[in-house]
């Protein structure tokens, strides 16, 4: 054992305290980059504290000193062995123009899978309401869509958007938060080996299909497209993106054809999952405002053709963005 623990600690204590103070300063700013001299000093102090800890542990000295040292060595280890690549300062522009579309493309299979499920659900929902209109309350859970579509269209066109007067902003907030929760939930359900995500995608598809066929059968196709396209062309892809993130997570959990362990597989996808979640959230903010401030106005206030054209333009822009943005930069090797 260390026979002169007091002297040992008295000698080393200033260095431990210096290391402790440096680590606390670093902890104050997660993005702080250490100047070269400071980084070198930090490493030196950490090495010294590590060696002190090894001495204390080997000679089994009293526990307080060891725990104190363990604490600062653990913190130092965290700082020194952190991934510098991941600690780089976040750049919004780079993320929007490259990271998000690039991630979406790399994980596109999961997106198409989510879309296939939603379409399967839509086919089922549409067929079910066509064959059995009585099933409407079970298929469409939203109370405002339970009535006769023709009556609703007549009411909306008479109302000229006054129904939402003085509450459009609040309505947009509710849409954004509700849809974001659903989307993030779709991602989180990926941890159920994708089963929950799968059910959620089908369920959403069933409702979309049932509503669409209900309006088409009532002869309100033009209203339907004018009402849904402006926000739906962004909202549905956003929800699908949540499903995409969920299936990426589920894929890592299942690990079919991969040799890595489950922790390594999850570690490899987490940045992509988070990127997709943030992307979906941004899209839902846009969709929420469009739904509240634009989609709810119908003819004669806004011509359906103009609303459809707006929706088509949004869709084209989104598709172009996801397919092309940052492709060239992503193809170049990083320097």
């Amino acid at each position: 054992m260390i026979v002169n623990l007091e002297r040992f600690i008295a000698l080393e204590r200033p260095r431990w305290e210096r290391l402790d103070a440096m680590l606390s300063r670093i902890a104050e700013d997660p993005w702080r980059r250490l100047p070269f001299d400071e980084a070198r000093e930090l490493e030196g102090l950490y090495q010294r504290a590590s060696s002190d800890l090894a001495r204390l542990a080997t000679f089994a000295a009293e526990p307080e000193a060891r725990r104190y040292l363990e604490n600062i060595v653990a913190r130092g280890y965290t700082e020194i062995h952190g991934a510098p690549e991941e600690a780089r300062r976040f750049r919004v522009g780079l993320w929007l123009t490259r990271t998000l579309p690039d991630t979406w493309r790399r994980r596109a299979r999961a997106f198409w899978f989510a879309m296939a499920l939603m379409m399967a659900g839509a086919v089922f929902g549409g067929a079910a309401i066509a064959l059995d209109p009585e099933a409407k309350p079970a298929l469409i859970r939203l109370p405002n869509l339970q009535g006769d579509p023709a009556e609703r269209v007549a009411h909306e066109e008479r109302d000229r958007g006054r129904g939402l007067a003085d509450r459009k902003a609040r309505f947009s907030g509710m849409l954004i938060t509700n849809n974001t929760q659903v989307t993030l939930f779709a991602m989180a359900l990926g941890m159920t080996w994708g089963i929950g995500t799968l059910v959620l995608m089908l369920q959403n598809g069933v409702m979309v299909g049932a509503v669409a066929v209900d309006y088409v059968m009532a002869g309100q196709t033009k209203f339907l497209l004018g009402w849904l396209l402006p926000h739906g062309v962004v909202e549905l892809p956003a929800i699908l993106m949540g499903g995409q993130a969920g299936f990426v997570l589920a894929g890592a959990l299942l690990g079919r054809g991969q040799r890595m362990g489950v922790a390594a597989r999850l570690g490899a996808v987490k940045a992509d999952v988070v990127t997709l979640c943030f992307g979906a959230t941004l899209m839902l903010v846009w969709a929420g405002f469009v739904e509240a401030f634009f989609s709810q106005y119908h003819e004669p206030v806004l011509p359906y053709a103009a609303k459809m054209a707006f929706g088509a333009s949004e869709f084209a822009a989104l598709a172009l963005y996801l397919a092309v943005a940052g492709r060239e930069a992503a193809a170049k090797p990083r320097t």
Binding site: A74, T78, H81, G82, A83, E86, A87, F90, A271
Partner: peptide, 8 residues
């Protein structure tokens, strides 16, 4: 035991 990333 490494540094936490924002994604984590």
């Amino acid at each position: 035991g490494r540094r936490l990333t924002f994604e984590q």
